[in-house]
Write a protein that binds this DNA or RNA. Structure first.
Length: 556
RNA sequence: GCCCUCGUAGCUCAGUGGAUAGAGCAUCCCCCUCCUAAGGGGAGGGUCACACGUUCGAUUCGUGUCGAGGGCGCCA
């Protein structure tokens, strides 16, 4: 099996300059906190492949002018096959580094040998991480907000897997409590209406059309209770039906969970009790007004929280803490919880609750990724959502109307902290305006060119790339080399949208390249080199799309 | 009132302690005898909300102000 590791030029450059710095300024070796060379990638290609700004940072400390420091570093640089000549000193004291052609091109060979693994790393070291996402209550169909959560959570999971983490995807069902009762009562009311019985619809009932459908199905499948007397049976029927619908939607969306964790099991397994007892034992609780409170203010919350109401039942916050305790106890030293931003209030509380347990859970546990609200646009107008009337855009609507690929891409393409406008017409359009088609088309276009050439792609593995000299080729090479770092950054910062940004840029480079001049030239060596380059590009596009769970079509 | 997120081109949004802040759309000009024009090239368009601070350097970090969205219950 070929190694997935890409020999990173950046770290090699850093090592080279670190050596040069110490040999030019040996005094720095004696510092308590050693100065670390940072290598960055300039945005402006005129500034070379890499840049080092250490001279500016050290000017004050050393009392020497930045350009002089830069010169001393460059002069002390050991000879290296990595570099194309002596680095330039530019501006106030930047050192701009250009790679030797051979160093620039080795990324293609890395891509060819690593294939689907290119860009992956072993940074996670096989450690366990849980990603909890969607976690919709089984009280209705999944809507756009859940869709965004599903896309972001699943992409995070894929990113972490690509970085060598052992990921478990988990869905937490709030299948206990008042809202589920409410669901049952809503269905019951519809059932009674149907047979002409007097029935008050619950005040906070669910009014969607789907409730009526569930009532009809219940009546059909359980004719013994046509008048809707058996509240328990109705409730479990409704929950099962809605869970089933949600599962189908998620499956159609390409999202699968390893574990579905039921809130009700926290009660039946006694974990809620156990958690409360433990918190009492640790001395972080008090009784007041007939209720049991947790002193969450000791752990950064802005007010204390009720755990057990005066009527003896628990608030939702207790099972939330108990649930997160199980994450820790199940061996997930790292856990990520993906939620809609409307739940951000629970963040401080759950973390405080975990701290109060005094069981060694780190303070920032779990990591939270919150996504902001979504506005759906159709025909230039906002699609209004009315929860009261039960009318909203469902995930299923989007998948059916614009397709799985576009829906997934649109949901992750903005950073999750930003509110998202989902333009249905744009997502459906097959044009350059539509970012997902633009990227997919780049992939299809390469397939088409390779097809037209008609040769054996295996031949391209060891082609000589030195004929590649124009600026499109060099920029494409540079973009390809960025991919592993991009994935690492996106995973580290839990920012899946970076993958979309990268893919759009890569696709744009490719489209420019094709249109710049005649692509399939007469010169056989140049032609093969170009084909090898786009073959590598296709691989990276494919790997990037795979992380997003979006298909990479051969033709469109 | 308190907490969270956001504020960057006319619009939708990226990005960053560094050099001239980017992309797409929209507007204007231009380009198909190689693959799919479902594409490409170019022009115009900016007080990076505002102020102060930290720094050699701030759009980026900190504090405050203003504006938008969301959240704050013995609801879940």
């Amino acid at each position: 099996m070929p190694s997935a590791a890409f020999v990173d030029n950046k770290s090699a450059i850093a090592a080279l300059f670190q050596q040069a710095l110490y040999s030019a300024f040996p005094a720095l070796l004696e510092d308590a906190s050693p100065f670390v060379i940072e290598v960055e990638k300039p945005k402006n290609p005129d500034h070379g492949h890499f840049a080092v700004n250490s001279a500016l940072q050290l000017a004050k400390k050393l009392g020497i002018k930045p350009r002089d420091i830069a010169e001393a570093i460059v002069d002390a640089l050991p000879a290296s096959a990595l570099l194309a000549g002596k680095p330039e000193i530019a501006g106030p004291g930047f050192i701009n580094i250009r790679l030797a052609r051979t160093a620039e091109m080795r990324v293609v060979a890395s891509i060819m040998s690593a294939g689907d693994q290119f860009g992956n790393s072993t940074a996670g070291g096989g450690r366990k991480v849980m990603v909890e996402f969607v976690s919709a209550n089984p009280t209705g169909p999944l809507h756009v907000g859940h869709g965004r959560g599903a896309a972001i959570g699943d992409t995070l999971a894929r990113l972490l897997e690509a970085q060598g983490w052992r990921v478990s995807r988990e869905f937490y069902y709030n299948d206990a409590g008042a809202q589920i009762n409410n669901l049952g009562l809503s269905v019951q009311a519809r059932l009674r209406e149907k047979v002409g019985l007097e029935s008050a619809f619950p005040e906070d009932g669910y009014r969607g059309q789907y409730i009526i459908e569930i009532a009809e199905r219940y009546a059909q499948e359980d004719p013994r209770d046509a008048t809707g007397n058996d509240a328990d049976a109705i409730r479990s029927f409704a929950v099962a039906a809605l869970r089933h619908e949600q599962d189908l939607d998620l499956k159609a969306f390409g999202v699968q969970f390893d574990v579905h964790y039921l809130e009700s099991s926290l009660y039946t397994d006694g974990l809620v009790e156990k958690t409360v007892d433990h918190l009492v034992k640790m001395g972080h609780t008090y009784e007041q007004d007939g209720a049991l409170w947790l002193r969450t203010t000791d752990y950064g919350d802005d007010k204390d929280r009720v755990m057990r109401k005066s009527d003896g039942t628990y608030t939702y916050f207790v099972p939330d803490v108990a649930y997160h305790v199980t994450k820790w106890e199940r061996g997930f030293a790292r856990a990520i919880t993906e939620l809609g931003a409307d739940h951000h209030g629970s963040l401080a509380r759950v973390r405080a609750g975990l701290q109060a347990m005094e069981m060694g859970v780190p303070q920032g546990y779990p990591d939270y990724v919150l996504h902001q609200m979504i506005t759906v646009m159709r025909a230039g107008e906002e699609v209004k959502i009315s929860k009261r009337a039960g009318s909203y855009v469902t995930l299923r609507d989007l998948i059916d109307e614009v397709g799985r690929d576009a829906t997934r891409y649109f949901f992750v393409m903005r950073k999750s902290d930003s509110q998202l406008t989902f333009d249905i017409d744009l997502a459906k359009s097959r044009s350059e305006d539509n970012p997902v088609y633009y990227v997919q088309y780049a992939h299809a276009r390469i397939c088409s060119v390779l097809n037209q050439w008609g040769g054996d792609c295996g031949r391209l593995d060891s082609v000589d790339l030195l004929p590649l000299t124009n600026k499109y080729e060099s920029e494409l090479l540079r973009a390809l080399a960025d991919f592993p770092e991009l994935l690492a950054t996106a995973a580290r910062e839990l920012s899946p949208h970076l993958v979309c940004v990268y893919l759009s840029e890569l696709a744009a480079r490719l489209h420019s390249y094709y249109n710049a001049e005649k692509f399939l030239v007469e010169d056989e060596k140049l032609k093969l080199a170009r084909l090898a380059l786009i073959l590598a590009t296709r691989q990276v596009l494919k790997n990037g799309l795979a992380v997003l769970g979006v298909s990479a079509p051969d033709k469109m």
